[in-house]
Write a protein that binds this DNA or RNA. Structure first.
Length: 594
RNA sequence: GCGCGGAUGGUCUAGUGGUAGGACCUGAGCCUUCCAAGCUCAUGGCCCGGGUUCAAAUCCCGGUCCGCGCACCA
């Protein structure tokens, strides 16, 4: 967390909210640390019954908006992939740093760089860690920051990927994916077929990713296993434009890099359309997805007063991203990253293309076929074969390359070319050299990628934190979660007013009806009615239905429906109950309208 | 990974070198005609491993985990 992400807030009150939320989450089944019976390990959390349902609802909402509503394809790739995938993606090298921390001042340095800069060793990265430690001791290397001696200080290997072996033995190393994105990129050659080779198209994936964090912190904000919802949107950089008209009026709070670098800088309130016109957001594609994301975040329950988009500073951006914005929410006075929107260019597909040898391109047809002159060769193999033996194939490749780059070489009686450092000369007539007119109907291009990448766990945490409320009802303190009906894990509680066979029987029938209507229902007949309301308030259940004597005795049977936030009650006929509640769940009806 | 602080039923907590008490929760029952009411009973705990000691939940060491700061976050 860097300094510009901090804001001044009253810590004593905000800390209480977080502590209370974590306590509530444990007690009410939202989330808790895993494997507690075995002492737990850091950074692993289990979502309990409520948490799993909430997370599932958030994922469904994401799927509706970013896959279905956008016409994108969803896939589900493995979490373990073989080593070459991560060689290509750059994760293997990027993760494998040797770090040494100064015991005096705490500064971390690249141990291999330290050795290379101060000794005769030129490729320290190839040394094993004990060797590097020996060299540091031998040369009495010191901390570059404060000058303290580093001899005897342990060198740490920082690879944030979890390694494993695929199959028996260690001949096939693999890694748990550190981001879901690679599972999409590696399958691009097939995915583009499913898109009928038409750009633009998008592929989404919701799944787990794994990073062996040095220091997991702050409950589910930073864990070692977490859920991402990612969209990789593939575009033709020269032709494809987003439909900004759909999002241009969306109001956003932006915190551009220029404002962050300015001492007096501040967040700016604007619209997506204006931000693009004024070049605040460089990529219209990134702007488009910011415009889609903002109302979506609001719909699942993020408090828009504690939400912003922050541009990455130039030093903060990954090497492949030309522009990157984060969606951030404020928790305890700190801004936490909930999503990143990056323009990744052709970095990923190019890398996989190079490393795999497969084609990570899309054929782009020209409007009009082009006619081009092209120099070609069609060598006489009955001559080259006897002449060059096993090298004949290489000769053909060399002649093809030569024809493409220097057709003048073929203008004489003979042509000269080099093969493995030796110059050869053969008659041009044996090469089948010709300049022909060819028709090209298109070209293979590497699409660019726009990547909205969401952290589901951090979003769930934010939704819970922003939903946490305390108030008073009839002089009694109350805690409740103001969760949106769309994502609330339990939608309705059903209670008989008191212990009574008639009430309980009727309540049971209503539970069945509501479940049949597809609602998440909980039944509770314990203790008095007030306690049951409070219990549901605390898990964030938006509505409670109570069956009383009017329900079982009156001619027209009705129940009371109580709304969580206001505790207001209305009487609803039993036979309209399922329909009414379903309409509220779908957002087609408000409780106030009843 | 380093530094500081911490770890007692499901949750929150009191406590002492002689194996623990409360509150809430939960369950059973009574009572109860709409917001954590009352009464009775019940379930359930000293993070793990070593050491010191007649005796360790308590003291010491190590580990695990949590919080905060530093570092890290491709």
């Amino acid at each position: 967390m860097s300094e510009h992400q901090q804001t001044e807030t009253n810590e004593s009150t905000v800390d209480q909210t977080s502590e209370k939320l974590v306590e509530l989450a444990k007690r009410r089944g939202y989330f808790f640390q895993s494997s507690g019976s075995y002492g737990s390990v850091g950074g692993f959390y289990t979502f309990g019954p409520q948490g799993a349902a909430l997370k599932g609802n958030v994922e469904d909402a994401w799927r509706d908006r970013f896959a279905l509503a956008e016409g994108n394809m969803e896939i589900d790739a493995p979490t373990i992939m073989p080593e070459p995938v991560f060689e290509a993606s750059g994760h293997l090298e990027g993760f494998d740093d040797m770090l040494i921390e100064c015991p005096e001042c705490g500064t971390s340095s690249r141990a291999d760089h330290l050795v290379e800069d101060n000794t005769m060793y030129e490729d320290a990265e190839s040394l094993e860690i004990p060797e590097v430690e020996e060299v540091i001791a031998e040369y009495e290397l010191v901390c570059p920051d404060c000058g303290a001696g580093l001899a005897g200080v342990a060198v740490e290997d920082f690879n944030l990927m979890f390694a494993t072996n695929i199959g028996p033995g260690d001949s096939q190393p693999g890694y748990l994916r550190p981001e879901t994105a690679q599972g999409i990129f590696v399958e691009f050659p097939r995915l583009k077929e499913y898109a009928r080779n038409q750009l633009p198209f998008g592929v989404t994936q919701i799944g787990r990713a794994y990073r062996n964090e040095i220091s997991p912190r702050r409950s589910i904000i930073r864990t070692r296993e977490f859920t991402q919802a990612e969209l990789e949107y593939f575009i033709d950089p020269e032709e494809d434009e987003p439909d900004l008209s759909a999002v241009e009026d969306v109001e956003v709070t932006l915190y551009p890099a220029t404002e962050q670098n300015d001492e007096d800088g501040d967040e700016i309130e604007t619209t997506i359309g204006e931000a693009v016109d004024n070049d605040v957001i460089a990529s219209p594609w990134v702007a488009y997805f910011l415009g889609v994301a903002k109302p979506w975040y609001e719909a699942v329950g993020v408090d828009m007063d504690r939400f912003r988009f922050r541009q990455h500073l130039s030093g903060e951006r990954a090497h492949y991203a030309s522009d990157c914005w984060d969606a951030e929410s404020e928790i305890d006075g700190n801004w936490i990253e909930m999503a990143g929107f990056a323009y990744r260019g052709d970095y990923d597909l190019s890398k996989h293309s190079e490393h795999s040898g497969d084609r990570f391109t899309v054929f782009k047809q020209y409007d009009e076929p082009k006619t081009v002159e092209r120099a070609t060769v069609d060598p006489d193999m009955s001559y080259l074969g006897p002449e060059f033996g096993g090298d004949a194939g290489a000769v053909v490749e060399e002649l093809e390359a030569l024809a493409a780059r220097d057709r003048a070489a073929f203008e004489g009686e003979t042509v000269e070319f080099e093969l493995e450092g030796e110059t050869h000369e053969i008659p041009v007539e044996k090469t089948g050299f010709a300049v022909e007119e060819q028709t090209e109907s298109g070209e293979h291009i590497i699409p660019h990628v726009v990547e909205p990448s969401f952290g589901v766990d951090r979003l769930v945490y934010t939704v819970l934190h922003h939903a946490y409320q305390e108030d008073e009802v009839d002089g009694e303190e109350r805690t409740y979660l103001e969760l949106e009906p769309e994502v609330a894990p339990t939608f309705v509680g059903v209670f008989p007013l008191q212990s009574d066979d008639a009430l309980e029987t009727q309540a049971g029938e209503i539970v069945d009806d509501l479940r049949e209507a597809g609602l998440s229902v909980t039944y509770d007949d314990s203790g008095n009615i007030g306690r049951r309301y409070r219990r549901q308030d605390e898990v964030g259940t938006p509505f409670c239905v109570t069956i009383d004597y009017e329900t079982v005795e009156a001619d027209e049977t009705t129940v009371t429906v109580r709304e969580r936030d206001t505790t207001d009650q209305k009487r609803i006929p039993v036979d309209e109950l399922a329909e009414t509640l379903s309409a509220i769940r779908e957002g087609d009806l408000e409780f106030e309208e009843l």
